[in-house]
Design a binder for these strands. Structure first.
Lengths: 211, 211
DNA sequence: TAGATTGTTAATCGATTAACAATC
DNA sequence: TAGATTGTTAATCGATTAACAATC
């Protein structure tokens, strides 16, 4: 498990998929797996699987294959570190924010929701996925006190433009971005995962109608 | 607007993002835009913008730039065809399915939800995003009668494995797949858009903890 | 005409795949 | 040992970027 000089984004994006399939294999009681078998499940080549794993060092045994539990441990550690959950806030507690918040809280993906914020006075004070919805005015004082690391953006484009700069200033390092505004252009120093459901739907439509 | 010999997937995936920014430009009353300006908004290069557009033929005017409304029309037609909505069914009307269904119905992305299915008798008969939730047993007869083209999979992995083959057999051509099962491996003939929120969250975690 | 900006070809870059030596 | 499968280097492929001629 030596160095990872600079792992490319495509490799990083494949890690969770490996992880899921390894969880399944482990649940089925499988002890070993080969790169070619994993490749088939993943819909890729054995070469890519081995290349991917070797970005992080030798997880396998030559001539034998990979131990499922070793792989699961190693990739799990890559994705979740030592298991400490990242303190996370959610901006925008509407329909989308509500669905997303329960996703963060329910599925254990390495995050801990510690607050939600909204400008709508009707929502402020309500409970959502285990936290109370606060007014946006409390954002600054809350961040200074609790030092959240990740912000989940579930607001419309215009609000996202306004609030993202403030969040970066308040020390947010990563964004799970559902807004239709790509803040990584203005804030290249933070890590952004854009989740544009509409885009994904539209490109499916293109592929069905054309090609 | 001549041929599109074979547009690569990365280009296709960028079309919705272009579309969104063009909608904004149009709403702001902008009439013209240059490849370099679009590139800045998109976080890419002018070269890529021009290459992308030229996959579909010449949308621009040399020396001048691109007319916003022409681009919007052309890309809109690429994404939405002549505007006819794709008949769509949803499988799995739980928490996730509910959130997703309202997304399909509310945002006009080229789809028309015509039915939802679930195995849970408590859900069957209820109204969801304008359609009635039906029992899974009615899937076959419904598909034979109404010929849906797209299926939205909001069921757990195991159910997805079982139901996806049936859906392909019943003529479904495209999947918007929220299940943790990549059916494009077993069904390479259909078009699949995987939306794995957990994966996106996990890879954000990796990038924050490492690199 | 001069300036600007596209359309398009060529060069670069990076990711994927293939090949094979190492080794269990 | 022989067979299998990894680790790793080399070859290929494709996407991005640069360059520049065409032209408005």
């Amino acid at each position: 498990m030596p160095a990872q000089n600079k792992v490319s984004l495509p490799v990083i994006k494949r890690l969770p998929k490996y992880y899921r399939y390894l969880v399944n294999l482990s649940a089925e009681g499988r002890e070993k797996v080969s790169s070619s078998e994993l490749a088939h499940m993943m819909g890729t080549t054995a070469s890519q699987v081995r290349q991917d794993f070797n970005c992080f060092g030798g997880f396998g045994q030559q001539g034998i294959g990979y131990k499922v539990n070793v792989l699961l441990d190693e990739i799990g550690r890559l994705l979740f570190g030592d298991g400490e959950l990242l303190p996370t806030i959610l901006i925008g507690a509407g329909r989308l924010g509500n669905a997303v918040s329960s996703f963060i809280s329910r599925d254990t993906n390495g995050y801990r929701l510690i607050a939600a914020f909204d400008i709508n006075p009707d929502l402020v004070g309500r409970e959502m996925s285990g936290v109370t919805i606060r007014p946006l005015e409390e954002l600054e004082s809350f961040c200074r006190e609790h030092k959240p690391v990740v912000a989940v953006l579930c607001v419309p484009r215009q609000s996202a433009v306004e609030v993202s700069g403030e969040l970066v200033r308040l020390g947010i390092k990563g964004f799970w971005n559902f807004s239709h505004y790509d803040l990584s252009v203005e804030h290249p120093e933070v890590t952004v995962e854009n989740v544009h459901l509409g885009d994904s739907l539209m490109s499916l439509g293109y592929r069905l109608r054309n090609g």
